[in-house]
Design a protein around this nucleic acid. Structure first.
Length: 803
DNA sequence: ATGAATCGGGG
DNA sequence: GTGTACGATTCAT
């Protein structure tokens, strides 16, 4: 039979019958399907002497208890040049790595016969390799010809594939999305789940074992075990295609798993009825539910979205406020613990819990389309792509293109090499320090496409660097002794060029498309996906763990970038602009006299005419008022920092917010108000006055103790700390008073007056009264830094705020 | 001063 | 069934 479906997930299983890839997806008429495909993993050997290499390998394998499916001779490009390789096809995914380890001793530098020079692509994950080979993108439509199978899976249809065809179709079928959130409480130092919420299309549900009067969408069960069973049941009855969480990889699913183990409940959510497992990744483990995509949107927000967000605090509250214009229900942590303990206000907590799931769901509604398009562009699956950093997106995009162009994918550097690379530095982007103060009528020009353009125009790629053929007339980089090949297009420029060209085609099409249509949305997200990958490639050259690392390429990009931005600044100044600020790829202009819009438009026409190749300067926008903060002004100098306000009174703030939960509430409040005074009311005096009042209030103790609490987590057992920070000291004091203190506990403390370091004066909030607080700490370490972050630029100093 | 250690995000 | 964050803050030397 023949079916068509939208690919959601892929994995593989090893059964007695052999190794099978599983493709999971959904048909246009809402059926969930799984398709089994026969495939084998393999890797490549680059030989010195191909015949001897094959004999040597066969000899080694005879001595080990491991066999291969086959060894064949094939041709692949290594650094752009066609060479002969041995392709070793294996029976099991883990065999590629294992067999490689056995045969690497043949390399000369390891004291072997020298018949092998190097091995390649032995650590590429099996299903990722499958996607690359078959040219299948995650979230594409597939047409499968095959025979029906019987499984015990929770699917409508299972097939054994004979033929797979990738279809051209941009549509997305209706998917069942379910957001999930839990609330926990600490009882005798142990975390317990006390509430869970679910939010989907026309579906809302809260389950709890805490008795109280609730609205009808709350279900009360008798204990935690029943709560856990009910959670599992809800997942299985709703049977979503995608489960969305906010920080679920590191919290909700971790705790759920943990509690299920303690209560002997099986956490079976997957479609193949296997228990939830965590797949290890770099920093975090991810909860994987076979056949259901677990999307933890915090990953995407933190890895990809955060640079373009105004907020630097990536809490659900801050992110929802910015993206949805909606907030969490306000309950602070202390209040929540109190509520669980006393069984008070539980109805509000149920609302709170549901609201979290609702916000998570609505964020997913916005971010899923973007994720689908990035997934399609990179050519991997949603589960993985939604968790990738910029570097990983670039790496997997390049890997896919390498596979398409029959190029060998370079190996990942060894750890020692990464360390060595990290020590190498080169000069970064050019920064023209901002002129201090408030500026009016500003134009922002954007060079964002600067690096991709330069890579293409100058043919910057590891294998085109210092080629033999162009020593005389290659692309020269001013100030560096490098050149890039004029004759042969490099691998990276060729794939970047594809990205840029595809993107400009889409942008052209966007102009002819109805803005409210689905097609517009899809195309818009697609061009965004292409843009972020193209823009990240320069950084990837210089990233120490990169497979296509080249210090020379990265250095060339930044040198050329500096050259062009300086030239642009010069041109702008010649045309009568005042350049208030410039950083790497953006310029902030003001006219000395005349209309900013007219002058800017004329300048853009003029300069883009002059620029070579694909280089282009774009208008980012006009702003009424703005302040810019010099990189050196405050500690932490790497980020661009400014605040702007446009004609409609909309604020645009970058890099100014710093206050996280390890700052007290009062500091957060102060920073927010100061920004409002400065930008909205343009009244520095009022801002100063306000800060002075707060300072005075602290001195007079006219504040609430709860606004001074600092929250910090004990991330490991208390004995293992080498450095005793304030929260560790506070935790020790809790323990001395007979409280159980464990890993993962959120410590709430106050800095008190007295002798010694900050840590020594950190006291658990339970044992502090307002009169003991260290006013100086709160004034000089919390309130003033938060306020001065903004006010410093306006010439306000610490002295102006404390009399 | 400078470097090492630690944290966030979720509850 | 691979593995890269990073900027701010405080302690320790």
């Amino acid at each position: 039979m023949k079916i068509r479906f939208f690919l959601l997930d892929i994995d593989y299983i090893t059964e007695k019958k052999g190794l099978k890839i599983r493709l999971w997806g959904k048909t246009a008429d809402g059926k969930n399907v799984v398709v089994f495909v026969q495939s084998n993993p393999y890797f490549f050997v680059f030989p010195k002497d191909i015949k001897k290499a094959q004999k040597d390998i066969e000899e080694i394998l005879k001595g080990k208890n491991i066999s291969v499916k086959g060894i064949e001779k094939i041709e692949k490009k290594l650094n752009g040049e066609l060479k002969e390789f041995l392709k070793i096809t294996c029976f099991l995914p883990q065999h590629t790595q294992k067999i490689r380890d056995f045969i690497k001793v043949l390399e000369k530098n390891r004291g072997g016969t020298g018949s092998i020079i190097e091995e390649y692509e032995y650590s590429i994950n099996f299903y990722r390799r499958f996607l690359m080979d078959k040219r299948i993108d995650g979230n594409c439509w597939l047409e499968i010809e095959g025979e029906k199978l019987n499984t015990n899976y929770k699917v409508d249809l299972a097939l054994n594939a004979k033929k797979i065809k990738v279809l051209e179709d941009i549509s997305i079928p209706e998917l069942k999305i379910l957001a999930f959130d839990i609330e926990t409480s600490e009882i005798a130092g142990e975390k317990q789940i006390v509430m869970a919420s679910f939010y989907g299309k026309a579906f809302k549900k809260v389950i709890t074992d805490q008795k109280s009067d609730y609205p009808d969408w709350v279900e009360v069960v008798k204990d935690e075990k029943e709560l856990l069973q009910k959670i599992v049941k809800t997942f299985n009855e709703y049977l979503p295609d995608i489960i969305v969480t906010y920080y679920g990889d590191s919290f909700d699913f971790q705790v759920l798993m943990d509690r299920c183990q303690s209560n002997k409940v099986k956490l079976i959510v997957s479609r193949d009825k296997t228990e939830t497992k965590f797949t290890r990744r770099a920093r975090i483990s991810s909860a994987r539910l076979n056949g259901i995509v677990h999307l933890d949107i915090f990953n995407f927000i933190s890895n990809i979205l955060s640079p373009s967000l105004q907020t630097e605090v990536l809490s659900l509250d801050a992110v929802s406020s910015e993206l949805l214009g909606d907030k969490k229900i306000e309950v602070d942590y202390q209040e929540m613990l109190e509520a669980w303990r006393k069984g008070k206000n539980l109805s509000k907590l149920a609302e709170y819990c549901l609201k979290d799931a609702e916000l998570t769901y609505r964020l997913a509604e916005i971010l899923l389309p973007q994720n689908f398009e990035i997934t399609k562009t990179v050519g991997q699956i949603l589960f993985d792509v939604s968790r990738m950093t910029y570097g990983q997106l670039v790496e997997w995009y390049l890997s896919r293109k390498a596979s398409e162009k029959n190029e060998i994918i370079p190996n990942q550097p060894k750890y020692e090499q990464v360390l060595k690379r990290r020590k190498i530095t080169y000069i970064g982007g050019f920064v023209k320090e901002p002129l201090p103060g408030i500026h009016e009528k500003i134009a922002i020009l954007d060079f964002r496409s600067l690096y991709p353009s330069l890579i293409v125009s100058f043919n910057i790629s590891p294998e085109t660097l210092n080629c033999d053929c162009c020593e005389e007339n290659g692309h020269k980089v001013a100030g560096l002794n490098y050149w890039f090949c004029q004759r042969k297009e490099g691998f990276i420029p060729s794939v970047i060029k594809e990205l840029i060209e595809k993107r400009s085609q889409i942008k052209k099409k966007l102009k002819e498309t109805e803005k409210t249509s689905l097609e517009y949305k899809v195309l818009y997200n697609r061009q965004y996906a292409l843009k972020i990958i193209a823009n990240a490639t320069y950084g990837y050259f210089g990233f120490a763990g990169s497979k296509w690392y080249s210090k020379e390429c990265a250095e060339s990009c930044s040198a050329l970038g500096r050259y062009w931005i300086k030239k642009t600044i010069e041109e702008a100044e010649n045309k009568g602009f005042e350049v208030i600020y410039a950083d790497t790829d953006s310029l902030f202009l003001k006219t000395k006299d005349g209309d900013i819009k007219q002058a800017t438009e004329a300048f853009l026409d003029y300069i883009n005419e002059k620029f070579p190749g694909m280089l282009e300067l774009d208008l980012q926008g006009y702003y009424e008022t703005g302040i810019f903060i010099p990189r050196g002004a405050a500690p932490g100098t790497a980020k661009k920092r400014y605040a702007l306000i446009d004609k409609k009174g909309e604020l645009l703030i970058r890099g100014l917010e710093t206050v996280r939960r390890d700052w007290c509430n009062l500091a957060k409040e102060v920073q927010r108000k100061v920004l409002e005074f400065v930008l909205r009311d343009k009244d520095i005096e009022m801002a100063k006055q306000y800060v002075k009042e707060v300072v005075e209030n602290i001195k007079q103790k006219q504040i609430l103790l709860k606004d001074l609490i600092i929250y910090e987590e004990l991330t490991k057992p208390i004995e293992t700390y080498k450095q005793i920070g304030p929260h560790v000291m506070a935790a020790k004091k809790l323990r001395e008073r007979g409280m159980e203190v464990g890993e993962g506990m959120l410590i709430m403390f106050i800095i008190t007056k007295g002798q010694g370091s900050i840590s020594q004066r950190a006291e658990p909030v339970e044992f502090v009264s307002l009169k003991e607080i260290d006013s100086d700490y709160y004034i000089y370490h919390q309130i003033l830094p938060a306020a001065l972050r903004v006010l410093q630029v306006l010439g306000v100093s610490e002295k102006d705020l404390v009399s």
